[in-house]
Amino acid sequence: SLEELLKLARHALRHGEEIHVLDRVITDEHEIKRLIEELERLI
């Protein structure tokens, strides 16, 4: 769900981890922040 993805993204950002989204691995902090902003808009 989007909520789950948002939780994962926030966790990854906090802990400096990578996040796997739709067969992509996002490691860049700015990309993760952008993902979080997009998800928050959708929810």
Rank of each mutant, 00 (worst) to 15 (best):
L39C: 02
E29R: 15
D23G: 11
E4G: 07
L13D: 02
G16R: 08
R14M: 15
S1A: 14
I26C: 03
A9L: 15
H15Y: 14
E3H: 12
I26E: 02
K7Q: 13
L22I: 08
I19S: 01
L6T: 01
I43P: 01
I26Q: 01
A12N: 02
A12W: 02
R41L: 09
E31K: 05
I26S: 02
I32R: 01
E4P: 03
E40N: 05
L8R: 13
R34A: 14
I43G: 02
L6M: 04
R34N: 10
L8Q: 13
H15L: 08
E40P: 00
L22A: 14
E17N: 11
L8W: 06
I19Y: 05
I19G: 01
L2N: 04
E18D: 09
L13C: 02
L13G: 01
L22R: 08
E40A: 05
H20D: 05
S1L: 12
L35E: 01
K7R: 14
S1F: 14
A12F: 02
E17P: 02
R34F: 09
H30M: 13
A12S: 04
L13S: 03
L8M: 11
K33F: 08
L5Q: 04
H15G: 05
R34M: 14
H15F: 12
L39E: 00
I32G: 01
I19K: 01
E29I: 14
D28G: 15
D28N: 11
E17Q: 14
L35P: 00
L8T: 09
E4F: 09
V25C: 04
E4C: 05
L35W: 10
A12C: 03
E4H: 10
E17V: 14
A12M: 02
A12H: 02
L8A: 13
R10E: 12
E40D: 05
E38N: 09
L39W: 06
I36F: 01
L2K: 04
L6G: 00
E40C: 04
I43L: 13
L22P: 05
D23L: 03
V25I: 12
D28H: 09
I32W: 02
L6D: 00
R34G: 08
A12G: 04
L13Q: 04
V21H: 08
R24F: 09
L2I: 10
E37S: 10
L8E: 10
R14K: 15
I19F: 13
K7F: 10
H15C: 06
E37V: 11
K7G: 07
H30A: 14
R14W: 12
E37A: 13
I43K: 03
V21F: 15
I26A: 04
H11N: 08
R34S: 11
H30K: 13
E18W: 10
R24N: 06
L39Q: 00
E37M: 12
L35G: 00
K33T: 09
E40V: 10
L42F: 07
R10D: 06
E4T: 09
R14S: 14
E17Y: 15
T27F: 07
L8P: 00
L2D: 03
L22S: 11
R24Q: 09
K33W: 08
I26P: 02
H11S: 06
H15Q: 07
E31Y: 05
E31N: 06
E4W: 11
E4L: 11
H15E: 09
L2F: 08
A9K: 00
K7V: 10
H20M: 12
H30P: 06
I32M: 07
I32E: 00
R14G: 07
V25R: 05
L2Q: 03
L35M: 06
V25S: 04
E3Q: 11
I43R: 03
K7E: 15
H11C: 05
E18P: 15
I36K: 01
E40S: 06
E38M: 14
V25T: 09
E29W: 12
E38K: 11
I26N: 01
R24H: 09
L35T: 02
E18G: 15
V25Y: 08
L8Y: 07
L2P: 06
E37P: 00
D23M: 03
I32D: 00
I43W: 05
S1V: 11
L39G: 00
L39Y: 03
G16W: 04
R41H: 09
K7S: 10
I43D: 02
I43N: 03
E29S: 14
E17T: 15
K7C: 05
L42Q: 08
R24C: 05
S1Y: 15
T27V: 11
E40M: 09
E37D: 11
I43Q: 04
H30R: 13
G16D: 04
